[in-house]
Computed example of a mutant assay.
Amino acid sequence: MEKATFDLLKEFRRTLHQNPELSGEEKETAKRVDDFFKQIGPDQTIKNIGRHGLAFVFEGKEKGLTSLYRCELDGLPIVEDNRILHKSNAVGISHLCGHDGHMAIIAGVGMYLKEHRPAKGRVILLFQPAEETGQGAEMVIGDKKFSKIKPDLAFALHNLPGYEKNQIVIKKGAFAAASVGMIIRLKGRNAHASHPESGNSPAEAMSKIIVALQKMPDAMKKFTLITVIHARLGEVAFGTTPGEATMMATLRAYENETRELLVSYSEKLCKQIAKEYGLEISFEYTEAFAATLNHEEAWTFGNEAAKKLKLKTKHIRIPFRWSEDFGQFSIQTKTLLFGLGAGKSQPQLHENNYDFPDEIIPTGVKMFEEIINQIHG
């Protein structure tokens, strides 16, 4: 990559880093991306897809496959703690997952396509909203505009701290876990704290549920994980026994079917405990992520690209436990999500001192360029 191109992408990435927006609120980020692509001149620009999403279409002269390359628009509700000149200007919001870097990479692919249109088929560059909440991919796919650009293949990358810079981390099949946020509410009956026997406190049932849920995966044949992330019992009122309790947990599995089984078993367990204590119980679910499954055909294109570029490649055997809403595209089409090493000493994703390493931008761009050349000539 030429120095002038790299400098432009680096400046764009740092501007995005300084101006993050939360999931579903990426209006200004989308405008910045749109302004950047005006100098590129795609054949078609589709705005407001999945609310604030953007898709840029590059047409080939001959008929062929449609391939899509996706990055994310949104930041996180985390206070950044960094001594960098391009630190976030938004109070309590930051790009601590590297979505700014992913956007810079796809912008770099756009610059490449400006000079090298696909010979056949068409290439879609998608800037997707609301990845962090697990809603964005579903909103994009559910948008009527998506039917015009529905791809035969879809690709994405995620930077991975803990791996050498520019290393490619790749795997066939399950790559990132399916997950869902489970909210459990118990309802009993308040009483005066001097006469707790007159009420029905959910305290003991709540304690049993927390312990039992986290032990549930031990009984499952396939990998599952339940992490209780929040619990609340009653109110701060020393003269009153609690009448309600709320627990929140994240349920994970490597397959969508296993996650659904885990949800079913967890509900049965919680209902059993609630019944034992004469409590009402209800459930709510949020932030559902489908498993990201790498199709063999899409994997082959990515693997060949890494070989041609002579990049150090790590073929992992066990999927990652974290979730990515790119999994929604896995349900729709043949997908590949691969990892791009961000450095062994790089702070982990979502840590408040994380900052995407600019020097891995060219590798991300070149990986997608090579994949495009294989598919579109």
Results as ranks from 00 to 15, higher is better:
Ala306Ser: 12
Leu349Lys: 03
Gln332Ala: 07
Glu304Thr: 13
Thr335Cys: 13
Gly364Gln: 03
Ser323Leu: 03
Ile361Thr: 01
Ile372Asp: 00
Gly341Asn: 10
Asp358Arg: 04
Gly343Trp: 08
Pro357Glu: 09
Thr335Met: 07
Glu369Tyr: 02
Leu349Thr: 00
Ala298Met: 03
Tyr354Asp: 09
Ser330Asn: 01
Asp325Ala: 12
Ser345Trp: 12
Gly364Trp: 04
Gln348Phe: 14
Leu337Lys: 08
Phe338Cys: 10
Val365Phe: 05
Asp358Gly: 06
Pro347Lys: 08
Thr363Trp: 06
Arg317Trp: 15
Glu369His: 08
Gly339Phe: 05
His315Gln: 15
Thr335Asn: 01
Phe326Val: 05
Glu324Met: 08
Glu324Val: 08
Asn303Val: 11
Ile360Asn: 00
Phe326Ser: 09
Gly364Thr: 04
Gly327Pro: 01
Glu324Gly: 03
Gly339Leu: 03
Lys312Glu: 02
Leu336Glu: 03
Lys344Pro: 03
Lys308Val: 09
Leu337Asp: 08
Thr333His: 10
Lys310Arg: 11
Asn303Ala: 12
Ser323Lys: 01
Gly343Tyr: 12
Pro357Ala: 02
Glu370Tyr: 07
Met367Ile: 00
Glu304Tyr: 15
Thr313Arg: 10
Leu336Asp: 00
Ala342Ile: 00
Asp325Leu: 09
Phe338Glu: 06
Gly339Pro: 04
Leu309Ser: 07
His350Ser: 13
Arg321Ser: 15
Ala306Cys: 02
Phe356Lys: 04
Leu336Ala: 09
Phe356Asp: 01
Gln328Gly: 08
Trp299Pro: 09
Ile372Ala: 00
Trp299Cys: 06
Phe329Gly: 10
Thr313Trp: 10
Lys314Ala: 13
Glu370Thr: 02
Gln332Glu: 12
Gln346Glu: 10
Lys314Ile: 12
Val365Gln: 03
Ala306Gly: 07
Ile361Gln: 06
Phe301Tyr: 11
Ala305Thr: 04
Asp325Lys: 03
Ala305Arg: 04
Pro319Gln: 11
Phe301Leu: 07
Pro319Leu: 03
Leu309Tyr: 05
Leu337Ala: 05
Gln332Met: 13
Glu324Leu: 09
Lys312Tyr: 13
Ser323Val: 03
Gly364Leu: 02
Leu311Thr: 10
Thr363His: 11
Gly339Asp: 00
Trp299Ser: 04
Phe301His: 11
Leu311Tyr: 00
Ser345Lys: 14
Ala298Asp: 00
Ile316Pro: 00
Leu349Gly: 07
Thr335Tyr: 10
Ala298Phe: 01
Pro319Ser: 06
Gly339Trp: 10
Ile316Asn: 06
Thr333Cys: 05
Phe356Val: 07
Lys314Gln: 11
Ser323Cys: 06
Lys310Gly: 08
His315Thr: 15
Phe320Gln: 08
Pro357Trp: 07
Lys314Asp: 14
Lys307Met: 05
Asp358Gln: 10
Ala298Ile: 05
Ser345Asn: 15
Asn352Trp: 04
Asp325Phe: 01
Ile372His: 00
Lys314Tyr: 12
Leu349Phe: 08
Tyr354Gly: 06
Asn373Pro: 13
Phe320Asp: 06
Phe356Tyr: 10
Pro319Ile: 01
Ser323Glu: 11
Lys312Trp: 05
Asp358Ile: 03
Phe301Gly: 01
Ile316Met: 11
Asp325Ser: 11
Pro362Ser: 06
Asn303Thr: 13
Met367Arg: 02
His350Thr: 04
Ser345His: 13
Ile318Cys: 14
Gln328Asp: 13
Pro347Trp: 05
Asn373Thr: 14
Lys308Asn: 14
Asn352Cys: 09
Pro319Met: 08
Phe338His: 13
